[in-house]
Amino acid sequence: MRQAGWMNTLIILAASAVGVAAFLYPFFTLSPDQQMAGLAARAHANDAPLVLIILVVFCLGAILANLGSGEMNSKMVAVLGVLVAMNAVLRAIPGPGGFSAVFFLPILCGYAYGGVFGFLLGALSLLVSALMGGGVGPWLPYQMFTAGWVGLASAWIPDLRRFGRLESIVLAVWGAVLGMVFGAIMNIWFWPFVMPPAGDSTMYWSAGLGMRETLKRYAVFYVATSLWWDLGRAGGNALLILLFGPAVLKVLRRFQARFRFHITPAVEHAGAEPD
């Protein structure tokens, strides 16, 4: 499964680029024209989130449609289904301080079974958890994207099996980094709704306030709301990987053989036709 077609990789990259652009859109609309546009621009500023969400849904569709075709077999579908269920349950178990183990399995499975598997596991487990708990909303595509990326990016770690203990340490560190970056994105999906677009900062905040100042305020907002949450989650995931990573990886690899070997069955026809 590690050799997903290069086209799939490109599709994921392009779709993710659109996703990132959509997320950071408020920062792009900084051209001087925009600032001159005055009232009209402000009146339009609020359409952006909805349009962007629709774009993100499209990109997610593009990824899911293309990862599916051709490379999937029934074992992968079933194993993914089961692991997605498990991850959704893990997410629902409340840990201390809002911690949830949602990145634990995508990181390990992405590493063991490849990026495509990891992406699907991450993205779909958020979908399932939203469907279970009634969490469908405009934030869902963003969350699916980020959790999918955690799984995808975990496949970038080369196979470290022969280094023993080092393997889980590297994975734990990488998991913590991914947890911080994507945890932040996941938690602040509402920024575009709460915070004014940066392009309009001159009007919305106080006269003459530049982008730098705006960014600073975003940063303060982030520290005040999301940072502690994310630190807890990233640390928690790293701890889980450190503690359980080796055992879980061992099981995943045991099963890998069971659902992979059959792809080219050695079928040999010999013997008589029935008479």
Partner: peptide, 13 residues
């Protein structure tokens, strides 16, 4: 042999 792999010989109808 399709699901389990392995080596198969003979005929089934």
């Amino acid at each position: 042999p399709h699901f389990y792999g392995g080596t198969f010989a003979g005929t089934v109808r």
